[in-house]
Design a protein around this nucleic acid. Structure first.
Length: 105
DNA sequence: CGAGTGACCGCAA
DNA sequence: ATTGCGGCCACTC
């Protein structure tokens, strides 16, 4: 049967690839949607080794902060979000309530 | 094949 | 409010 590739990483890739521009998702959200609400770590892990074809820059943590970028240091990732219309704070935080995207459509 | 790491999250005190 | 700890899967060496 080929039940849609029961691969967790593959599942996350699909979700990330479906994230529309100007929108962000949290690792926990992706992990939960992938079927593992406690596997947020894996999302970050595969993200580091994941294909660059996917907009990982749209993936942020629950705090709304960009991963791999800390306050005071400009990161191309944060810049990319601004280029998509996402307002990023000086601490590299975005309004999850406003930009969080849920795969319901 | 085995062990370690990883861009995290949630809860408890 | 903050801090500390455990847990989960995948990938790499």
């Amino acid at each position: 049967m080929t039940p849609t590739e029961p691969n967790f990483s593959h599942r996350v890739y699909e979700l990330v690839a479906q994230i529309p521009p100007g929108r962000v998702m949290t690792y926990g959200q992706l992990a939960a949607l992938a079927g593992h609400p406690r596997a947020a770590r894996i999302v970050g892990g595969i993200a580091h080794f994941g294909p660059e074809d996917l907009p990982w820059h749209r993936v942020v943590n629950k705090q709304g902060g960009l991963a791999g970028a800390f306050p005071g240091g400009r990161s191309e990732q944060g810049r990319r979000l601004e280029a998509e219309g996402v307002e990023v704070s000086v601490d590299y935080k975005v309004k999850l309530e406003e930009l969080i995207w849920y795969p319901d459509r």
